[in-house]
Amino acid sequence: MNSYLHAMGITEWQPKSAQITEGLWLLSDNSAEVSLEHPLVQEVLKLLDVDSRDCQIASSDTAAKIASANVLWDMRAQAQTGRLRSQPLPMLCQSAQGKRDLWQQIWQLQVQQQQ
């Protein structure tokens, strides 16, 4: 993605045929190191009853190609899509308020699934 457009919060248009429509995705900033083995990621996936083997991680560059319905968790600084949205993982680990916000989203998802 063009870094100038990204800085302005504008996503580039992608043809529908180029979208990735399979699997569950976690989105992260290009600079953030995110692993499916990270304890916080593992705990969130466990709470959502999602197996980490069913998930993949994509950077901001690839995010525009992923269908929004397949985004489980957007951990980019400018989170735009996903069932869960949070700060980037390194910041989230240091933020009590960020974790509270994330747990609130998880709770809301669980309530919606039970209805």
Results as ranks from 00 to 15, higher is better:
Tyr4Asn: 11
Leu5Tyr: 07
Ala7Tyr: 08
Gly9Leu: 02
Gly9Ser: 04
Ile10Tyr: 14
Glu12Ser: 08
Pro15Lys: 11
Lys16Phe: 13
Lys16Val: 11
Ser17Lys: 13
Ala18His: 14
Ile20Ser: 02
Thr21Pro: 00
Glu22Leu: 05
Gly23Gln: 10
Gly23Lys: 09
Leu24Gly: 04
Leu24Met: 08
Trp25Ala: 06
Ser28Asn: 12
Ala32Ile: 06
Glu33Ala: 15
Leu36Asn: 06
Gln42Asp: 10
Lys46Gly: 06
Leu47Trp: 12
Val50Gln: 08
Asp51Glu: 13
Ser52Leu: 10
Arg53Ile: 08
Arg53Met: 09
Cys55Val: 11
Cys55Phe: 06
Cys55Ala: 09
Ser59Asp: 15
Ala63Glu: 00
Ala63Gln: 00
Ala64Val: 13
Lys65Cys: 12
Ile66His: 00
Ile66Leu: 09
Ile66Cys: 07
Ile66Asp: 03
Asn70Arg: 12
Val71Ser: 04
Leu72Pro: 00
Asp74Ile: 00
Arg76Tyr: 03
Ala77Trp: 07
Ala77Cys: 07
Ala77Val: 11
Gln78His: 13
Gln78Trp: 06
Ala79Gln: 03
Gly82Ile: 01
Gly82Met: 01
Gly82Asp: 02
Arg83Lys: 15
Arg83Ala: 15
Leu84Thr: 03
Arg85Thr: 10
Met91Ser: 13
Leu92Arg: 06
Cys93Lys: 14
Gln97Cys: 05
Gly98Thr: 05
Gly98Ser: 04
Lys99Gln: 12
Arg100Thr: 14
Asp101Arg: 12
Asp101Gly: 15
Leu102Ser: 02
Trp103Gly: 00
Gln105Phe: 01
Trp107Asp: 14
Leu109Met: 14
Val111Ile: 13
Gln114Val: 11
Gln115Glu: 08
